[in-house]
Computed example of a mutant assay.
Amino acid sequence: MIRQIFVVLSSYICAVWFNLSIDKNSTSDIITYFSILVGFFLSALAILYASPLRKTLSETQYDKQKDKWTKTVDEYKNVIIFSIFSILMLLVKLPSDWNLYFEFYGHDMLQADKFYLALVISATISFIYLVNILFKNMKVEIND
């Protein structure tokens, strides 16, 4: 979860600094994107749970406290919670009379379109990270 927050903050700062943005009116597209990601994550986790691979991952130690199955479930849980929280943040609309302004080195730091871009970048990086975990786990040998 801390990794996702760091990625959002760093993506947001880069978006502001380099003046990159996403259309403020595309929140429904972004929510759809997050919903598809959550559906993919849950489907992948269900497939892993129903396969014989789960037992093998449960028996394989990741570190002293966790096995690979627990680590995988924890990673998926964190990304799903982050995605659902992001959807909630996109659904909440601030009143238009709120004038939030914070300047840093001549750049307005509170811009919704930059924040939306940071959420999309963070979700994409999380997606790539979890797909990488999924394919690493698929390479584990199973003795049926």
Rank of each mutant, 00 (worst) to 15 (best):
I5H: 03
I5S: 09
V7E: 09
V8G: 02
L9R: 05
S10F: 15
S10G: 13
S11Y: 04
S11N: 03
Y12V: 02
Y12T: 02
A15E: 04
W17A: 11
F18R: 03
F18Q: 08
L20E: 04
S21P: 01
S21N: 05
S26I: 01
T27E: 15
S28C: 06
D29Q: 12
I31Y: 11
S35D: 10
L37N: 07
V38K: 04
G39E: 08
F40M: 12
F40K: 08
S43W: 06
A44S: 14
A46T: 04
I47N: 07
S51F: 06
P52K: 07
L53F: 02
R54I: 03
K55H: 10
T56V: 09
L57E: 00
E59D: 13
Q61A: 14
Q61S: 15
D63K: 11
K66P: 00
K68W: 07
W69H: 03
T70S: 14
K71A: 12
K71M: 13
V73N: 01
V73G: 00
D74A: 09
E75S: 14
E75V: 00
K77D: 13
N78V: 03
V79H: 00
V79G: 01
V79Q: 01
I80W: 01
S83Y: 02
S83T: 14
S86I: 05
I87G: 04
M89P: 01
M89Y: 02
L91A: 14
L91T: 12
V92L: 11
K93H: 09
K93V: 09
K93F: 06
L94A: 14
D97R: 01
W98C: 08
L100T: 09
Y101V: 10
Y101R: 15
F102Y: 14
G106Q: 04
H107D: 08
A112H: 06
A112F: 11
D113H: 14
D113Y: 09
D113I: 07
